[in-house]
Design a protein around this nucleic acid. Structure first.
Lengths: 203, 203
DNA sequence: GCATTAATTAAACGTACGTTCTATTAATTC
DNA sequence: GAATTAATAGAACGTACGTTTAATTAATGC
């Protein structure tokens, strides 16, 4: 056999990507074999090389797309309003985005080691750019006297770790809804930065 | 050749453990080969099997020792004093312990996937026990009216993620000392739980 | 100093991996 | 409907891996 009836490159690539995200998230990048991936989609291993020249390129592509989508999601959600609302929006967008794409998030957070130095640099650059948005919010809030922040870099890291960590324990359909988690976390974040009136917030 | 002059089982095992922590932290468990590990210590790969029956057992041993040491460290540091001091002590101990053992921490956080189900369960049980200590502090603080906490489980997770995340960005000898980081984080933690007078704290 | 135990080497086994090569069939174009 | 392009299959290549087996030397106990 060779080309199969109804085969379609775009469709196969999309299937491969989502199957790869699931397998890598579950077993890790090294532990996922190209044969395992191809079997999940129902093609031979050799067929993968029509879409991705190497296994590492596949990983890089997944991560890059994830980071671009994250940045785009924030730019679409970013309000022009006051800093507290911007901070809440950042936390909200971050949590929702990552919960909705838990596999891709796991991959992006756990498999950086498997990238070549150049590709690692590129992903880290995208990540840093995204995190700059948070730091700018923190800086604005501090300058306007609305936040009490000892160190912007350190506080930014603490918040990122805290809100990204949601995917470690969150399971859809259990105790908390996404809304509850998002609301709770943005309240904790506002307290963490010493936001004026954080305690009275009804949002 | 066979047994080498000056060879000593305890010494070799200790060397293997620390070499393994470093290699796994840097390259990941799957990416580390037994030959790579043995070469780092200067023995043949077959020699490893005198100390660890399988590669996975080696990983499990490292993780278990790490968790036991963490629990012991907290039990030694735990004060009998008021809840705010206990919370500060927890944060302080956690950060210092993890910074001092960054390799082991990385391994314990990143390589859970490579454990068999039974062994994963055991490590998770230890981890849960440790995290219970934090939740108890939060519960006590809330009951005494000192903390303002919406949900103990969720707040506990947020704090754990935040303070464990330090090892992701912290590099000894750069901008911050361990003391500064620990102090800053316990201030953020107290704010996060809405601790009364957190803003006036001089600790 | 001999017997025993501890620590290691050297070589090999079977397996699984990423990747490549070539052939083959399906869809598309004109 | 012939020519071309797209999408795959099937087989193979070389390599590296975890682990085992047997032999060998060093240290220890009596």
């Amino acid at each position: 056999m060779a080309r199969t009836a109804g085969s379609d490159g775009e469709k196969t690539e999309a299937l491969l990507r989502s199957a790869a995200l699931e397998l890598i998230a579950r077993h890790g990048f090294d532990a996922m074999s190209m044969r395992q991936l191809s079997a999940k989609v129902g093609v031979q291993a050799a067929a993968l090389y029509r879409y991705f020249p190497t296994k590492e390129t596949l990983l890089f592509t997944l991560m890059k797309d994830h980071m671009e989508a994250l940045q785009a999601s924030w730019e679409a959600a970013r309000p022009e309003s006051d800093v507290s609302a911007r901070l809440s929006a950042f936390v909200d967008n971050h949590i929702r985005f990552h919960i909705e794409r838990r596999h891709a998030t796991h991959v992006s957070n756990m498999e950086l080691r498997s990238l070549s130095p150049e590709r690692l640099t590129e992903i880290m650059r995208m990540r840093t750019n995204y995190e700059k948005e948070l730091r700018q919010i923190l800086r604005d809030g501090a300058q306007q006297g609305l936040f009490r922040i000892d160190d912007v870099t350190l506080t930014g890291m603490a918040i990122i770790q805290m809100i990204t960590g949601v995917i470690v324990w969150f399971r859809p359909g259990e105790r908390f809804s996404v809304d509850e988690v998002a609301q709770n976390y943005h309240r904790m974040t506002l307290r963490l930065v010493g936001a004026a009136h954080a305690e009275d917030s009804h949002v």
